[in-house]
Simulated scan of single mutants.
Amino acid sequence: MTDSATPDLSTLSFEDALAQLERIVSELESGQAPLEKSLELYERGAKLKALCEQRLEAARLQVEKITLNKAGQVESVAPAEFN
């Protein structure tokens, strides 16, 4: 599935990658695609899933925890912790 109609993954935004992944899942769930096409779709979907996870992790790491003092002013900024 690497024809000219299929954009390179690195050029996709998170939203575009997720939309493509949703279309692929829908097509695979329909059961209408021939086996070879289903395998190509599955492979593309796995790559899109990995890309989405990578972009989400990068965004998570950019989130900052801001601590305010009693006056409501920024006291400190630290990386967020997600437990």
Rank of each mutant, 00 (worst) to 15 (best):
T2P: 06
T2C: 08
T2L: 08
D3M: 02
D3R: 02
S4V: 13
S4C: 10
T6L: 06
P7S: 14
P7R: 09
L9F: 05
S10F: 14
T11N: 03
T11F: 05
S13L: 03
S13V: 02
F14D: 05
F14V: 07
E15N: 11
E15W: 04
E15D: 10
E15G: 07
D16M: 10
D16H: 14
A17Q: 04
A17H: 01
L18D: 07
A19T: 11
A19R: 12
Q20C: 09
L21Y: 14
L21F: 15
E22W: 07
I24G: 04
V25G: 09
V25M: 14
S26Y: 07
S26Q: 10
L28D: 05
E29V: 08
E29C: 10
E29A: 12
S30N: 09
S30V: 06
G31E: 01
Q32L: 15
A33M: 08
P34S: 01
P34L: 02
L35C: 01
L35F: 10
E36V: 14
E36M: 13
S38F: 05
E40Y: 02
E40L: 09
E40W: 05
E40P: 00
Y42V: 13
R44A: 01
R44G: 01
R44M: 00
G45N: 06
K47M: 08
K47A: 11
K47E: 09
K49S: 06
A50Y: 05
L51E: 02
C52H: 04
C52R: 09
C52I: 03
E53L: 13
E53R: 11
E53P: 13
Q54Y: 05
Q54A: 14
E57I: 11
E57L: 06
A59I: 12
A59Q: 09
R60Y: 01
L61E: 15
L61P: 10
E64L: 14
E64S: 15
K65P: 07
I66L: 09
I66V: 10
T67Q: 15
L68M: 09
L68I: 02
L68P: 01
A71C: 10
A71G: 00
A71E: 01
G72Y: 00
Q73D: 10
V74E: 00
E75Q: 03
S76I: 00
A78M: 12
A78R: 15
A80R: 05
E81D: 07
F82Q: 01
F82D: 06
